[in-house]
């Protein structure tokens, strides 16, 4: 599952660091006040400043950005850079630490899991990587041209260029010799071409449409469920076809991988979405 890798422990510690740093700073300020130690208010306030930066980092690494959390470092500097009376400074720190704690909880539950810019990464993330690796051996016989067609079809579809996707997929589907012993790739091209044509013309689902054959089922990312209605089956077929093109392109055309990585978030969405 995304977000449950080795990095997720670090994220948990960082989430915990926000209240610890901010309230810790306030605690130091209270202790120095009660013990009568002369300490500039801005030193313990560093806890809140650091906690703000940690919070902003946690907000930044989520695909869905929280602008409130992202701007907290600015507020921390505005609030704590100016010298203030010690007692009011402690109250300000306590209120600020409470706000940061509420914001980190809000971030955790309303802005999803951390997932640093999938499209900007250099590797495939789970669960897409597992699917692509599982289907790797199937693509040994396809030509570089067919793999490149798959890349272009997938990328153009992700970009919403449905007319070009239809045309490119149709061309690729008409060259069965290029796909070696994987006729399911031809079927994937045909399915994508059909869907892209319908979408380009904003047409609704036809009564009959292209599907994969039962023998392709082992290569499909998302099984067709018996309980699925026609709409569900229609769109799952498209998801499977697009993911097959992605896998073929990734495994058979190394040069095209940077282009595929720019669409990784879309591929992940197809794989884990409804």
């Amino acid at each position: 599952m995304p977000g449950e890798g080795p990095g997720s422990n670090t994220h948990k510690w960082l989430e915990l660091a926000v209240p610890l740093l901010s309230f810790g700073g306030a605690l130091v300020a209270i202790l120095s006040f009660t013990q009568g130690l002369p300490l500039d208010f801005r030193y313990p306030a560093l806890g809140c400043v650091l906690a703000s930066f940690v919070l902003a980092y946690l907000a930044w690494i989520r695909p869905k950005k929280d602008i409130v959390a992202l701007t907290t470092p600015i507020y921390s500097l505005i609030f704590f850079i100016v010298p203030t009376e010690y007692m009011s400074g402690i109250i300000l720190q306590l209120l600020y630490a409470t706000s940061l704690t509420i914001l980190v909880v809000r971030l955790k539950y309303r802005f999803g899991r951390p997932g640093m810019a999938l499209s900007g990464g250099k590797e495939l993330a789970e669960p897409l990587r597992t699917y692509v690796e599982q289907t790797r051996d199937v693509w040994t016989g396809i030509s570089p041209e067919a793999a490149h067609h798959a890349t272009v079809a997938f990328v153009r579809f992700a970009e919403g260029e449905f007319g070009e996707t239809a045309q490119r997929s149709g061309t690729a589907a008409g060259q069965p010799d290029d796909v070696g012993n994987t006729p399911c790739l031809t079927r994937a091209f045909m399915i994508v071409s059909e869907h892209a044509t319908l979408m380009d013309q904003s047409l609704s689902r036809p009564a009959t449409y292209r599907t994969f054959l039962p023998e392709d089922s082992g290569m499909l990312a998302k099984p067709l469920l018996p309980a699925q209605d026609d709409d569900g089956g229609f769109y799952t077929t498209l998801d499977n076809a697009l993911l097959l093109l992605f896998s073929a392109a990734w495994n058979a055309s190394g040069e095209d991988r940077p282009h595929l990585l720019t669409c990784q978030a879309f591929a992940q969405k197809l794989l884990i979405g409804k």
Binding site: Y235, A265, F266
Partner: peptide, 20 residues
Amino acid sequence: EAKTVRVKLINENMVGKIVR
């Protein structure tokens, strides 16, 4: 100009595209 799309298909690569 708009193309009818399902919500799931809207992604960051489609920035600038007109959709329905």
